[in-house]
């Protein structure tokens, strides 16, 4: 599957801007008195990478599994939520409800796939919480879904394992820490704004995790797995912090 990440920007405008940037002093150049930005040196990248791993540990330490994300009133919830993905809205995966199966894998006892009918029959709860994007914007929305923790328990997942990973219909992938997976507000969101979640927000379901940045809230989830091996993620492999907790 191709990932149209590079098509996000008009190419020509981008090239002109880059030529200008290359010929201009950057802050890094001022520090290093060299022609290129210090950020791009391999040693600097290693240090930044190491610091990001350190920040994973610091954030895991700060995470309190009983602390709930603030909730808001019905009137504060946005219905026309921002569409956000690494591809245009026309490329949104449109999964057929009848054919959909949620695959389970890894340290899970009962790995039989789940139909949408069975998933939708799970006990559900609503939340009105703030979605915070790594870019800085935030939006309050109302989601309805089944707590991921009870689902993992039901299928006999090893709850002492370290990670819960996901694969999505658009090629997106990633993982979260087990304490966050078991957090009471982490849900498999089947509904948005009192309706079935539409395709552009992740039909048949999105993992709604109000204690994580937006990019750790995957849409169009097709596989969940439990593992002890650290996994990367679509944006994490592009330099973003893995834990990314709020």
């Amino acid at each position: 599957m191709t990932r149209p990440v590079l098509e996000r920007k008009p190419l020509v405008a981008g090239i002109e801007r880059r030529l200008f940037l290359r010929q201009t002093l950057s802050l890094g150049a001022l520090v290093m008195l060299s022609g290129c930005d210090i950020s791009d040196q391999d040693q600097v990248q290693s240090v930044l990478h190491w610091l990001s791993r350190w920040n994973d540990r610091a954030q895991a330490f700060l995470f309190n599994r009983r602390r709930l994300a603030p909730t808001y009133s019905e009137s504060e919830a946005v219905r026309d939520f921002r569409y956000n993905a690494y591809f245009p809205i026309a490329a949104v995966p449109r999964l057929a409800a009848a054919d959909y199966r949620l695959e389970l894998s890894g340290l899970i006892e009962d790995k039989r796939p789940w139909t949408l009918e069975r998933l939708y029959a799970l006990p559900q709860q609503s939340q009105i919480t703030r979605h915070v994007c790594v870019e800085g914007w935030s939006m309050i929305g109302k989601w309805r879904g089944a707590p991921l923790g009870s689902f993992l328990q039901r299928v006999g997942a090893d709850l002492s394992a370290k990670y819960v990973g996901y694969y999505c219909a658009d090629g997106y992938y990633g993982s979260i820490d087990m304490p966050t997976a078991l957090h009471p507000q982490t849900v498999m969101a089947f509904g948005f704004a009192n309706e079935t979640i539409p395709a552009k927000y992740g039909f048949p379901f999105k993992l709604r995790i109000p204690t994580k940045l937006g990019f750790k809230n995957p849409k169009w989830v097709t596989t969940l797995y439990v593992t002890n091996r650290p996994t990367g993620g679509f944006w994490e492999d592009r330099g973003y912090n893995w834990f990314s907790g709020l």
Binding site: G14, I15, R17, R18, F20, L21, R22, T24, L25, S26, L27, G28, C36, D37, S39, D40
Partner: peptide, 11 residues
């Protein structure tokens, strides 16, 4: 962008 820190954009 020239006065910001975070590496070359095209790179």
């Amino acid at each position: 962008y020239a006065y910001t820190l975070g590496g070359d954009l095209s790179l």
